[in-house]
Structure formats: structure tokens, C-alpha cells
């Protein structure tokens, strides 16, 4: 290897382009909207229930606000938003020239 760096933009670019062609992420990675939606629906339900059953001590502590109820409902709405978004705009199918199949067995 010469004193000049052996790496030109071409070399790196070629290597990365080749890796991109073999990359499996686009085809196989699940959609994070499903996880956010699921987690926040579960959190929303749990915390909303905690809000319905809030004790007077809970309310006093939170300045008289039923904070569990409001936070729970907020999280529920956020969770549903992500699930609805996923439903309306599902994950785009991978380009045909990459790894085949959306759900290949690993």
C-alpha cells in the first residue's frame, strides 16, 4: 500500500454499494410502529385503570389532578395512532431485487 491512502471514494463506495445489495434489513426488519403501538396500548390500559381506581391520597399527591387517568388516556391514544397508521400505510414491500420474501424463515 502506497503512502497515499489506499482508500478513494471509489473503493469505499464500491464496498458499501456491494454490501447494500446483500443487505437484509429492508426486507426482514419488522416495523417499529407495531411495537410502539402495542406497548403504548398496554401501558395506556394499565395506567388508565390505575386512574379509575385512584385513591384520595393519589389525587392529593398529584395536586388534585387524576394524572394516571390523563396520562393513561394519552398513552392509549398514542398507541392507537401508531396502530392505525400501520394499518393505513403498511410497510412497503421490499424491492424485488433484494432478499426475497417478507417473512423468510431464518
Amino acid at each position: 500500500m502506497s503512502e497515499n491512502s489506499g482508500y478513494s471514494e471509489n473503493a469505499v463506495s464500491r464496498e458499501v454499494t456491494e454490501l447494500e445489495t446483500n443487505s437484509a434489513t429492508a426486507a426482514r426488519l419488522f416495523d417499529i410502529r407495531r411495537i410502539i403501538g402495542g406497548l403504548f396500548v398496554v401501558y395506556g390500559v394499565i395506567v388508565t385503570i390505575a386512574g379509575f381506581t385512584a385513591s384520595d391520597a393519589d389525587l392529593d399527591k398529584a395536586e388534585g389532578v387524576n394524572i394516571n387517568l390523563w396520562t393513561g388516556l394519552g398513552m392509549l391514544v398514542l398507541g392507537l395512532f401508531f396502530l392505525v397508521w400501520l394499518k393505513l400505510r403498511p410497510t412497503a414491500p421490499p424491492p424485488p431485487d433484494t432478499v426475497p420474501g417478507d417473512e423468510p424463515p431464518q
Binding site: L19, E20, S23, A24, A27, R28, F30
Partner: peptide, 12 residues
């Protein structure tokens, strides 16, 4: 989803 080093280091 990790098949190449590009997947592992840069999410492909």
C-alpha cells in the same frame, strides 16, 4: 435482519 456488516453497523 442482520446479514451483512452493513446491516449490523448501519441498518443496511
Amino acid at each position: 435482519s442482520v446479514k451483512t456488516s452493513l446491516d449490523f453497523f448501519l441498518s443496511g
